[in-house]
């Protein structure tokens, strides 16, 4: 692969916002993760990609502080993670919206938990609701929204707490293909405009290659990093050209070649 740099050691001049050191996670006798170390460069989007059961969501939840690793540690900005913190925000696969609360109350939930006053937090929430394109739906309820719109609410909630690291657990897997493409384009703009570090779990090869600055390819049983891929060329060519860029197509093929033996 001439066009993509394949290098498990730290790359570029970007420093790491998040690093995981020798993470292992056992559930009883089952080894979910073994001795996994990864660096997540600041301001970039890193995908965790792998077949189902490879522990990518487990790793993300360990970074979030929702799960405790059996051994090893996670550092965010040099500080060891002991639980959820204000420096990280989570976007859930099933949206995890409160069905009895309006959009604006859902988006403001994280700020409410930080003890911010009602009018202040709703001003901030309203700003992010507009930013994700849901202006006018502030007082709707989740059941009145489509799947795609619900995930925009989840995204606005994560953005509004202004965390440096955004953790996204297969955020687009429950929305339809067309909405998903729009989301992917919006996500690229978001990475560009917000100075945040994104960690993105997906099982879609095309999606990972399309949105990522860095792809960590995980293989299962027990889960380990098989390869780190950094697409280099096509990102600057504009969203419309990525899917027909030769490098994009090569990387997709290469990843499939590594994964195909692990898919039942």
């Amino acid at each position: 692969m001439a066009m993509s740099q394949i290098d498990p050691v730290v790359i570029d001049n970007a420093e790491s916002a998040v690093s995981t050191r020798n993470i292992s996670k056992n559930y009883g006798d089952v080894e979910a993760l073994r001795d996994l170390s990864l660096e997540f460069p600041r301001g970039q989007l890193t995908s965790l990609l792998g077949p189902s059961g490879c522990g990518k969501t487990t790793l993300l939840k360990i970074i979030a502080g929702l799960l405790e690793p059996t051994s090893g540690e996670v550092e965010v900005n040099g500080k060891t993670v002991t639980g959820p913190g204000p420096d990280r925000a989570f976007v859930f696969q099933d949206f995890a919206l409160l069905p009895w609360a309006s959009v604006i109350r859902n988006v403001a939930f994280g700020l409410e938990m930080r003890g911010m006053g009602k009018s202040e937090r709703e001003d901030i929430a309203a700003k992010y609701i507009k930013e994700v394109g849901l202006g006018g739906f502030e007082h709707s309820y989740p059941h009145e929204l489509s799947g795609g719109m619900r995930q925009r609410v989840g995204l606005a909630r994560a953005l509004s707490v202004d965390a440096e690291v955004l953790l996204m657990d297969e955020p687009f897997s429950a929305v339809d293909e067309q909405t998903r493409r729009k989301f992917q384009e919006d996500l690229l703009a978001l990475v560009q405009n917000e100075n945040k570090t994104f960690i993105f779990v997906t099982h879609s090869i095309e999606e990972a290659v399309y949105v990522s600055d860095q792809i960590a390819l995980l293989l299962p049983r027990p889960s380990r990093v098989h390869e780190i891929i950094r697409p280099s060329n096509f990102r600057s060519k504009g969203v419309d050209n990525i899917r027909r860029d030769p490098e994009y197509l090569d990387i997709v093929d290469e990843i499939w070649a590594s994964l195909r033996t692990y898919v039942e």
């Binding site: 939840k61 979030a64 502080g65 929702l66 639980g83 959820p84 913190g85 204000p86 990280r88 925000a89 989570f90 859930f92 995890a96 939930f109 994280g110 938990m113 930080r114 909630r157 707490v161």
Partner: peptide, 8 residues
């Protein structure tokens, strides 16, 4: 989990 992640 959402509650925990947002520091409730």
């Amino acid at each position: 989990e959402m509650g925990k992640a947002f520091l409730a």
